[in-house]
Amino acid sequence: MTKLSMTVNGKPVSGNVEGRTLLVDFLRQDLHLTGTHVGCDTSQCGACTVHVNGVAVKSCTMLAAEADGADVATIEGQANADGSLNVIQQAFQDHHGLQCGFCTPGMVMATADLLKNNPTPNEADVRHHLDGNICRCTGYHNIVKAVLAASGQDVDAVAAE
């Protein structure tokens, strides 16, 4: 067992894990932060996306031990301080960018990463950036709209429905 500690959503946490424990399993099982989901076993779906030291990472591709000492952000820490939805979350609700909600945490975390690096992406940028996040429900149309809206752009100019 390896002892580790890190900051998750601004709070210090620590734990004892097997060497093979993935970061996603540490978050879900040890910390009970179950908003980060597991949708595959080949690092293809992005449902497990979190931020490690400010960079979007698929938490199924990283060992928990590798995140020792890191600053980790998950979906549970994304809302505003007063509990209201942040700009990205609100845009997803406003534009019906989620249905079953399973891919959604990963989509929100991936979007935050995109907008940090590219504050005004166009439609093609959004689609390209989200290629590592699979959604089976929405057909992506409303996710694309939500991301563009979260960036403050005029969504209606892009798509009517």
Binding site: T74, F92, L98, P105
Partner: peptide, 21 residues
Amino acid sequence: PKRREDIRFLTGLGQYTDDIS
């Protein structure tokens, strides 16, 4: 109206079967 279920899904508070321990 905006979907009310979205709030829990967007904040990581959905309860899927594998989230229940």
